[in-house]
């Protein structure tokens, strides 16, 4: 464990908690893509199949449970909470995410560390995390609504990606046999998509600030 990875995990967790608290506090999920949140929950559920079989460390186990619980809590809030679900932009959140799930699964069958159930699902979760932001990106382009996507959320999400890439560079230079091609290549694609999301976030935020007429 290095400081970059620890900080990356913390900023990732904080970004999820910020979103969950924002939805819970405002009882609104306007501008948030349920499909992206469902994909994130699927990422954690398929990545942590080894939760009960392989024990890496207490930190690892606790964080896995927290990630699964917080991502499912967001999906539950957006689907079941009587007040929150009313503000869901159902007719704008129309990205066909089932095709993305299928494509990632087929890719995982072809490209994985080892052709076992656990490894195929692990690779699937890595590919899926890279493209999970797409429904949110499309919704943001359509709605331009950043009410619930606070700047802090975007900031911590960006920090998570940046710190993980630094972590991989650090491990590459300090560990002799560090090769995580699947995670690194997919992580770079993910960071590229996040950069695109941040760009549209900035455009929407700038437009909104202009729209708010001076009092």
């Amino acid at each position: 464990m290095n400081i970059f990875r620890f900080a990356g995990d913390m900023t990732h967790l904080i970004s999820i908690l910020i979103l969950l608290l924002k939805i819970y506090a405002t009882k609104s999920c306007a501008g948030i893509s349920l499909k992206t949140q469902e994909l994130y929950a699927l990422v954690f559920l398929t990545r942590y199949l080894d939760l009960f079989t392989d024990y890496v460390s207490l930190y690892n186990t606790v964080m896995k449970i927290v990630f699964i619980a917080s991502s499912l809590a967001i999906v539950w809030c957006m689907r079941r909470h009587p007040l929150v679900r009313r503000s869901y932009d159902k007719d704008l959140d129309t990205f066909r995410h089932q095709y993305v799930v299928l494509a990632c699964f087929v890719l995982a069958l072809l490209l994985n560390e080892k052709f076992t159930i656990q490894e195929v699902f692990w690779a699937f979760s890595i590919y899926l995390e890279a493209v999970a932001i797409l429904p949110q990106l499309v919704l943001l382009q359509r709605s331009g609504n950043v009410d619930n996507l606070t700047g802090q959320y975007v900031l911590f999400l960006g920090a998570y990606r940046g710190l993980y890439i630094i972590n991989w560079i650090y491990r590459y230079f300090t560990e002799d046999h560090f090769t995580r091609w699947i995670a690194c290549v997919s992580g770079l694609v993910q960071t590229g998509l996040y950069a695109d999301f941040f760009y549209y976030y900035y455009l929407s935020w700038k437009t909104n600030t202009k729209l708010k007429l001076p009092a």
């Binding site: 464990m1 995990d9 890496v56 080892k114 490894e119 692990w122 995580r180």
Partner: peptide, 10 residues
């Protein structure tokens, strides 16, 4: 002996 795959990252 194949290198054990360890997914220690979250």
């Amino acid at each position: 002996e194949e290198a054990e795959i360890d997914h220690d990252e979250l």
